[in-house]
Write a protein that binds this DNA or RNA. Structure first.
Lengths: 214, 214
DNA sequence: TAGAGTAATGGCACTCGGTGCCGAATGGAA
DNA sequence: TTCCATTCGGCACCGAGTGCCATTACTCTA
């Protein structure tokens, strides 16, 4: 379950400067398998689609499927971990005098911005992740890395250890904001994801007004 | 995975006024199995312990185990869903003029109060849930019910639909506060869980001060 | 052009969680 | 004792995931 280190090297590209001298060429790609799988999911549902089905539809062996994805549950996640590096960078690109939660909110919104052309695809992806129980569960493990990135940034700003209560709480809460927003976004096509996230964040802030902070 | 309706009836007690006329007596109990399982988990770890191991150690058939727990992942959860009814009640026991987030915070703290005698047990339970990847993942599904209870209460107070952005965001964020607090609590024996939750909540509130709420 | 080396493939067998089925065992009530 | 309800647990089966390993396909070099 806990996506080993080999995978990071294996899954997320050729790691730039890999010589890759010889050897047989991969017969397919993560992207292609993802596509094949999504079609099947749409047709028969996630649970009802077996890895065998996917492999057969893609013309590869079942065993080979598991060389492209560590698990069936990972199919919808694409190159998520790669994007985390971007988030890490983005968070630090904001001026240091900008209030902490403003930065977090802005970065959250940015992180989840997708090109208009990919919106329908992204919807399907997120619908799977947020609505299929097995994927809901699995996603927790993926979110952990995301939270870690946020927590690291907050920890720096607050000059606290990463695993201290403050940074961790904020990271968890921010994730909550994101998830609540996504659920809303999936419910209503016409809503703008970025706007929802901003609204959720400020809404949460508002709900705390009047709470004693000492 | 999605714990069916039969289970609610089956797992969580005799449902008070059940006549239970005749029939063979259960040969064991959830509590006993939980105990046997925890011993094995402590000895060999969660992953390394198979359902067969547990059944054998408890002197029951493997098939029977699954009549007591819907899955291996559910072992540490005890009677969680029962407690939710308590939370639901508690939230409404606070005066209506008490600020929303104060009530949520107080209820959160109350919900997680455990008798001193059970603290060591609770620690082991939560250590499993929060640290074993498979259980981390599975717990998401259990938390959903918890969030629902909080969201319902918030929705009433704000006079919004349960699935609106506000209630959902607050429910998610509150869950985050709880999880961050638990992680902290597990890290340091000497900390008081209730105090950590209160601190996390007010800390989150503080972090929002200065955020524009319009 | 014939290797030699390298990397991906995919079949096989296996483990483990989880389920449907069904006969056997158990205990209360008539 | 008989009937009924309920639990037990074996059996067969499914699907995800893994270790092993021979095979295939590709590149580079002698």
């Amino acid at each position: 379950m806990a996506l080993g280190a080999e995978w990071k090297a294996r899954l997320y590209g050729n790691d730039s400067a890999t010589p890759a001298r010889g050897g047989r060429k991969p017969v397919t790609s993560r992207a292609e398998l993802e596509h094949v799988a999504f079609d099947l999911f749409a047709a028969q549902g996630f649970e009802a689609t077996t890895v065998d089905d996917i492999a057969r539809a893609a013309g590869i062996g079942r065993r080979t499927f598991f060389r492209y994805f560590p698990s069936k549950n990972d199919i919808p996640w694409g190159a998520f971990d790669e994007q985390l590096d971007q988030l890490r960078t983005d968070l630090r690109a904001y001026p240091v005098d900008q209030p902490l939660m403003d930065v977090v909110r802005a970065a959250l919104v940015d992180f989840n911005r997708v090109p208009a052309a990919e919106v329908p695809w992204h919807r399907r992806r997120m619908a799977l992740i947020l609505q299929v129980p097995a994927l809901q569960a699995h996603s927790t493990l993926r979110y952990a890395n995301w939270r870690q990135v946020v927590a690291e940034f907050v920890a720096e700003r607050l000059d606290q250890p990463v695993d201290a209560l403050g940074p961790q709480t904020i990271a968890y809460a921010t994730l909550g904001v994101a998830l609540a927003s996504y659920e809303q976004w999936l419910r209503d096509e016409s809503q703008d994801l970025a706007a929802l996230m901003a609204a959720a964040m400020t809404g949460l802030a508002e709900s705390f007004t009047g709470v004693r902070t000492t």
